[in-house]
Design a binder for these strands. Sequence first.
DNA 1: CGGCGCGGTGAGAACGCTCTCACACCTCGT
DNA 2: ACGAGGTGTGAGAGCGTTCTCACCGCGCCG
Lengths: 343, 343
Amino acid sequence: MTTTGPRPPTPTLEQVAALAGVSRATVSRVINDSPRVSPEARDAVHAAVEALRYVPNRMARSLVTRRTDTIALVLSESNTQIFADPFFARIVRGLSARLADTELNLVLLAARGRREQEKVARYVQQGHVDGVILISLHRDDLLPDLLARSPVPLVLSGRPFDGRPVPYVDADNVGGAVAATSHLLQLGRSRIGTVAGPLDMVAGLDRLAGYRAALAAAGVPARPELVAEGDFTEAGGARAMARLLGDVPDLDAVFVASDPMAVGALRVLRAAGRRVPEDVAVVGFDDAEVAATCDPPLTTVAQPLDEMTGGLVDLLLERIGSGGAPAAGSRVCGTALVRRASA
Amino acid sequence: MTTTGPRPPTPTLEQVAALAGVSRATVSRVINDSPRVSPEARDAVHAAVEALRYVPNRMARSLVTRRTDTIALVLSESNTQIFADPFFARIVRGLSARLADTELNLVLLAARGRREQEKVARYVQQGHVDGVILISLHRDDLLPDLLARSPVPLVLSGRPFDGRPVPYVDADNVGGAVAATSHLLQLGRSRIGTVAGPLDMVAGLDRLAGYRAALAAAGVPARPELVAEGDFTEAGGARAMARLLGDVPDLDAVFVASDPMAVGALRVLRAAGRRVPEDVAVVGFDDAEVAATCDPPLTTVAQPLDEMTGGLVDLLLERIGSGGAPAAGSRVCGTALVRRASA
DNA sequence: CGGCGCGGTGAGAACGCTCTCACACCTCGT
DNA sequence: ACGAGGTGTGAGAGCGTTCTCACCGCGCCG
C-alpha cells in the first residue's frame, strides 16, 4: 500500500555500512573506488548498495570536497532568440559531447533581464557549480562583472568587450570576414555590401571590421550605405538585405555575418529577382547545417566548433584544477572558407 | 599582488557571527529573516555580512534543509532541434517568469542519447534539484522511467504515452485540431490534407487524431495520401508539404500541426504557384510569433502558454511541498482558433 | 626472533549550515 | 513583591559525506 506522506528516507552511507558489515570509511572508499580495499569488502559493499538502491548525497559530498562536478553554460540574452540559433545548439552539443565521459554535468542557465542575471549570479556564487562558461555577450552585459566578483572560475565563449582579464575562446572573426570579403573581391565584384551582426556584440563588430579591412586593403572606398545591421536571425537578415537592396540596387555581392541571416538574405534576393551567384554573390558565416542544404548552397566561413568547445572546457577545467589560477591561455581559433555555389 | 594558489577561503556563518558579536544561530536567523531578532542584532549582522561579502553555502544549507531551491527543465531530445522551436523558447520564458519572484532557480538539462539521459537521471537522483519538469517526450524515451525511480517530484509537459501515473499539463491538442479542421470544412474545402507532427510524440498523434475526428464527423472519407508526417521543424514541414502536393495536386486546404512547419509549407505552396488562402487554405498550430508576421499571416490554434507553464510550476510545487504526494491534478488546457489571413 | 613496513580497516573530526532547546531577561497582572 | 508569559539569544546536536590518523595483523628481512 502506497502511503501518502513525507518522502521515503533515502539510505545513507551509514546504513550501507551496517548492511555490508563494514565501516562508513570503507563504503566511502568503495564508492570512490580507492585501491586500498579488499575484494571481499568491495563485493559486500556493492551488494549492500544494490540492495538498498543507495545513491550518494551530493550535497553532503560537496560540502566536504568543495566540488559539485557541475559546470554551467550561462546564456545572457534579453530575448530568447539565442535558442533558435543553430550555432548555440552546436555549442551545447559540443560541450555535452566533450563532457560525456567525464564525471562533469552540464547545466544551462538562461538569464534575460537584470533580475534573472542577478539570480543566476547568486546561483553561481552560492556554490552550485564549479565553473561557468558564459556565452552570447552584449556590450552592456552585467554578468561578467557579477560573476567575476565570485571566486568561481569563468571562461567566455567570445572575446570580452573591454580587455578584461577573463580567459576566452573565440573564432578568428576578423580573419574569417577578411577571407570572405577577399573571396568576393577575387570574384571581380566591386559593389560588395554586408549584412552585419548586432554591433553590440564582439562577433558582429569583428566581422564588420574584417569586411572593412579587406575592402580597404584592396583600395575599395568604404560606402556606409553598403552596411546594414542585422541581429543574427533569419528574419533580421531578410530585413537588412531588403534595406541594402533598396539603397544599393546595383549591389553585386554581399557578405552576411551569419548563416541564418544569409538564408533570410537569399530569400529576399530571390524575391527581388536577383540570381545568386550570377547577379549577387553571397558568403555567409558559421557553416551551419542549413548552409549545405539551402538553395543555392551557401559559401560560408567555417569555425572549428569542436576545437572551440574543447578549448572552452579545457580552459575551464584547468582553472578549476588550479583553484582559479592565472587568467592566461585564451585561444583564438582559425576559420576556413567553405566554397559552395553561392559565391 | 595577486598570488596564484588555492581559492581564497569564503567566509562562513561562524566568521560573520564573530564579527557581528553574536552567535551563529542569530546570524542564521537574520539570513533567513526570522522575526525573532532584535533590530540591533539584525543591523550588526547585516554590516558583518556586507563587510565580509558573505554568501551562504548552499550545499551546507541543503544538507540540513533537504531542499535545493532549484528545479530542472529536462529536454529529452535525440537531436538539438528542440532548441530551435519557438514553442520551447516560450516555455522557458514562461517558466522563468513564473519563478522570477520566488526563491526558485531554473536549470536546463539537455539529454540526447542514452548516456546523457542516464547522466541527467543520476544528476537528479543525487539530489541536485527539488523537482523536474520533463518536456518533449518521445514514445521510447527512457527518462520518465529513470526519473520515476527516484523520489524527486516529476511533472510532464505533455501527456505521457502509456497512462502512467505521472501528473502532467497539456494543451487540448485533439480539440485544437478538431477546431482547425472544422474551420477548413466550414470554408467549404473538401480535399483537406494535414502535415502531422512526429508520430512518436503525443502532440503529433493527438493533432492527427483531431484532424481525423473532424473529417469523420463531417462524413468526409479518410484518404491516407492526405497525411504527411513532419518533425515540427520548418524544413520538415516544407518536405511534407511538397510530398502532399505531389500526391494530391488538387489539395484545397491543409492543417499543419505546428507553426514552424506551416511556414515551411507556405514557402512550398508559394513556390508551387498556389495562392494562400484562395487555392489552398492553411491552418497552423501554436500561435508562434512568426504566425503573425509571415506572409500571409497564419490562421492557427493558440495554446494558453502562460496557463500551461503556470500549471506546470504549481503542480510541481504542490508535489514538492507535500513531499511527493499523490499523482493527481493533471491539467488539460483549452485552445483557441486565431483567425488570420491564411484560412 | 624482534622490529619494520604495508595493506586493510575503523574511529572520529571536520565541512557550514539549521533548528531544537534551554536560559536569561523583561515586562506585566495580581 | 512574585510568578506567568513572552522575547531575544546561544549552546549544541545533527545533516551525510570525506579524510586524516591510528591501529591491527601479516610477511619479511636482518
